[in-house]
Design a protein around this nucleic acid. Structure first.
Length: 255
DNA sequence: ATGGCCTTTATCAAAGGA
């Protein structure tokens, strides 16, 4: 069984790449972020045609999350904060006895900015949600665009962003609080090497030079660790013509 | 050392992303 996450940076612009991903990789479950698409404009027919069902929470222009799967999915309720928030950034769905939590954590713009304060507050709300879900489910996959590079080996040394969002102490501390709830970074179960990135800026020819950040993650609870076989960044999808700036991450399980 | 691209829309300029 394969579970994937991918920030597609507009599902309608990236639809051909997404279809190629579903065909070539054949994942069982895919969590998408930045669909940038209202629900009534979601390209459901094309996705259904490839044998996938979909649940999605979108809005115009910004944000938007979706989960695709070959098998049945059902919605898991969120806390009021996320249910009522105008920014559609989280979606929790049940898949058999496993809970899939798809997150698009805010970017934060610059350390100390209003958006950065929002990012930290949003993360605190996510922790509250995860505590609730953790008490209800033993098998949880928490995946998506976290906009946090957890360790020093997870970002390029040629840092061109002055304010250092994604690597600030407060963001990393909140990431570690998620880990402390009982989540494991599945990629690091298999690969301890530096320069293993999932996002490369469109500018500066960052992909060609491998100047990136590892900010897209698939975290699993302890009950799933024994089933994990591999976790890989599918860089070929970042190398396509007109790519998303993120590459998909794929976790393979012996299920 | 700087800035550089891509997507969206109340478009043809500006905002947001990371």
């Amino acid at each position: 069984m394969k579970i994937a996450t991918w920030n597609v940076n507009s599902i309608r612009v990236r639809l051909s790449h997404l279809c190629q991903f579903l065909t070539d990789i054949s994942p069982d479950i895919v969590a998408l972020q930045e669909t940038k698409c209202e629900d009534e404009k979601f390209p459901l027919a094309e996705i259904n045609a490839l044998g996938y069902q979909a649940l999605y929470q979108g809005q115009k222009s910004y944000n938007g999350v979706a989960v695709l799967a070959k098998k049945d999915l059902s919605l898991e309720p969120l806390t009021d904060y996320f249910t009522q928030h105008e920014q559609k950034r989280v979606l929790a769905v049940k898949h058999d006895d496993t809970l899939i939590v798809d997150v698009y954590i805010p970017n934060g713009q610059a350390v100390g900015s209003e958006k950065y304060i929002f990012k930290l507050a949003w993360l605190q709300e996510l922790l509250n949600l995860l505590k609730t879900l953790k008490s209800k489910y033993s098998k949880i996959v928490l995946l998506g665009d976290f906009n946090i590079a957890p360790e020093e080996i997870d970002h390029t040394s040629a840092n061109f962003i002055k304010d250092k969002i994604m690597i600030s102490e407060a963001e990393r501390e909140l990431f570690q609080q998620m880990i402390a709830l009982g989540f494991y970074d599945s990629f690091r179960l298999f690969n301890k090497e530096p320069k293993q990135y999932t996002w490369w800026d469109y500018r500066i020819r960052a992909f060609e030079k491998n100047l990136g950040y590892r900010i897209d993650h698939i975290l699993v609870t302890e009950a799933l660790i024994k089933d994990c076989i591999a976790c890989d960044v599918e860089k070929t999808f970042r190398a396509l013509d007109k790519p998303s700036d993120h590459a998909p991450v794929v976790l393979t399980l012996s299920l």
